[in-house]
Write a protein that binds this DNA or RNA. Structure first.
Lengths: 119, 119
DNA sequence: TCAGATAGGGATAAATTTATCTCTATTGAA
DNA sequence: TTCAATAGAGATAAATTTATCCCTATCTGA
């Protein structure tokens, strides 16, 4: 396990949100769980760019921040389901707001991002 | 200059926003510039945890994504001012929404974050 | 004249995050 | 009987991000 060497700044609400949402796949995980993709294997299929390992790690962090919960069914082959806690659900409108801004400016953003990758 | 080796996923609006806002200090920079702290030295004082170098780099990225603009006054000692473009300003309500959620859950988030740092 | 403010960049190191590969286990299907 | 699906974790490598240190320049004030 990795041990942090520097403490994060936690001044305002923005910093706090950053602490729990900062992670390459976290927002997408919350989003897809909210859409009903609850099993790890389903989430992996929805996010093929991420390795199994990293998704597990980020899910564990989301769980430790009480944004998602996990049910382990004692069956074989294993079955696990994640769900949004009430706390996690309260984030959905926020994520939705972010996504809407992105969708609204989709073309412009794509152009800008591509231009900046080549340079 | 660092050269990317992997391409980002750009499926939905959320991914696009991630590309331009993902960076330890970017949201704070946008926020403080919006609040009227426009000169690099002012921003550095507002964000003492970040090094001069990194702020410059992130400002440059924000500029390349057209969220901020930059005015260089030809004076000595040098004077530079950043400002939000209209595009950048359109992000302020989004950032505000994020910050509000964080402020609303301030105590809970702090507790959760601290608990997870020690473990 | 020397320190400090102003702005910025190169080289490099350190920290952090993400990816890859390998193992464990069990059941059902080909 | 061998392969795929299911879920998860350790060890390690690679990628990425952030920090540190040092240099350039000019003017003002002590």
């Amino acid at each position: 396990m990795y041990e942090r060497k520097t403490m994060p700044d936690l001044n305002c609400g923005l910093d706090l949100v950053g602490e729990v949402l900062y992670g390459k796949w976290k927002i997408r995980l919350l989003w897809f769980i909210n859409e009903g993709f609850q099993r790890p294997s389903e989430l992996q299929r929805k996010i093929p760019g991420a390795s199994r390992r990293v998704l597990n790690m980020q899910l564990k962090e989301l769980e430790s921040h009480e944004l998602v919960g996990k049910i382990i069914y004692p069956v074989v082959p294993p079955k696990v389901e994640y769900y949004l806690t009430d706390f996690g659900k309260s984030l959905i409108p926020v994520i939705s707001t972010i996504g809407q801004w992105g969708d609204l400016h989709d073309q412009r953003l794509r152009t800008l991002i591509e231009k900046n990758i080549q340079s």
